[in-house]
Simulated scan of single mutants.
Amino acid sequence: MTPVGGTSTGTGAGAAVRRLDLGWFVRPDSETGDGRPRVEPALAYLVDHGGELLLFDTGIGAADPETDAHYRPYRRPLPAALADAGVTPADIALVVNCHLHFDHIGGNPLFPGTPLLTQRAELALARAGGHTIEELVDFPGAVFEELDGEAEIRPGLWILPTPGHTAGHQSLVLRRPNGTVILAGQTHTSASDFAAAELAARARAAGAGEPLPEPDPWVERLLALDPRQVLFAHDAAVWEPLSG
């Protein structure tokens, strides 16, 4: 499997990652912060961990007419994206969703009986109503494994809570011999936004005077893992450290 960056690591060198293009949507000007609409990708990630295949997010789901009119999505079927990688939905052993909004769980119903890892707080939000498209959550055969905080789900694969976009947002951390890779989902809209948060944390650690941006508490937790790459759900750009 061809990874996002660099060459294939092979079975003995940790998890390899392949980015999947699952379409796009148009974020309206009311949500972008700069008064202009923006087209954003819907990205998922296929992880090969020693021959076991995991999927981080599953694309844009079917929504009601009002939501479709608001975001004008183009959906690329998940089976087609997986076929490009030489696999099928039946090959996936585990699904991890960064959160349960409809643009991250669209392909979940393709995985009845497959464990779906989510934070307990996120699943509670989804089931309370008004958070997502409910038919994409408790579909026939849905099997959730609920987490309360950090968890090592496989040797070298960690789930870390990264709340902010939603209360139960989580990221997937891949500890690899050639450096840590973080699948950060929608912790930030873009790699540039994450870079700004990283620099703010660096400035604070260096004793820069106030005022400074107030960081999310988990940003320092992610940076303590010394990531080599951070990948996002709605930005094809990849964050990498300025040095090292």
Score class of each variant (00 low, 15 high):
1 M>D: 07
2 T>H: 14
4 V>I: 09
5 G>Y: 12
7 T>N: 11
8 S>A: 15
9 T>E: 11
10 G>N: 09
11 T>M: 10
12 G>K: 10
13 A>K: 14
13 A>F: 13
20 L>Q: 07
20 L>Y: 01
22 L>G: 01
22 L>F: 07
25 F>C: 06
26 V>H: 12
28 P>S: 10
29 D>C: 11
32 T>H: 09
32 T>E: 10
32 T>C: 02
33 G>F: 06
33 G>T: 08
33 G>Q: 04
34 D>R: 11
34 D>W: 06
36 R>F: 11
38 R>E: 11
40 E>L: 15
40 E>M: 15
42 A>R: 11
43 L>H: 04
43 L>C: 02
44 A>M: 03
47 V>N: 03
48 D>P: 00
49 H>D: 02
53 L>R: 01
54 L>Y: 02
54 L>G: 01
56 F>P: 03
61 G>A: 04
61 G>N: 05
63 A>W: 09
63 A>I: 06
64 D>K: 13
69 A>H: 12
70 H>A: 15
73 P>M: 00
74 Y>S: 13
75 R>E: 04
78 L>G: 00
79 P>N: 07
81 A>I: 00
81 A>Q: 01
82 L>G: 03
82 L>D: 04
82 L>F: 02
89 P>T: 04
91 D>Q: 08
94 L>H: 02
95 V>A: 00
96 V>D: 00
99 H>K: 03
100 L>E: 05
100 L>M: 01
101 H>V: 13
102 F>W: 14
103 D>V: 10
104 H>R: 10
106 G>N: 00
106 G>P: 00
108 N>G: 04
108 N>W: 06
108 N>K: 08
115 P>I: 04
115 P>E: 06
116 L>P: 00
117 L>P: 09
119 Q>Y: 12
119 Q>V: 05
119 Q>K: 11
123 L>H: 07
126 A>R: 05
133 I>R: 15
133 I>Q: 14
134 E>M: 12
135 E>L: 12
136 L>Y: 03
136 L>F: 06
140 P>F: 10
151 A>R: 15
156 G>A: 10
157 L>D: 03
160 L>P: 06
161 P>A: 01
162 T>N: 09
165 H>D: 10
166 T>D: 01
170 Q>R: 05
175 R>K: 14
179 G>M: 02
181 V>K: 10
184 A>Y: 12
184 A>G: 05
185 G>S: 03
188 H>Q: 02
193 D>K: 11
193 D>Y: 08
194 F>E: 07
204 R>I: 08
206 A>W: 05
208 A>D: 07
209 G>N: 11
210 E>W: 13
211 P>K: 09
212 L>I: 02
215 P>H: 13
217 P>H: 09
219 V>Q: 05
221 R>A: 12
226 D>P: 05
227 P>T: 04
228 R>D: 02
229 Q>M: 05
234 H>P: 03
236 A>M: 13
242 L>H: 14
242 L>T: 13
242 L>A: 14
243 S>Y: 13
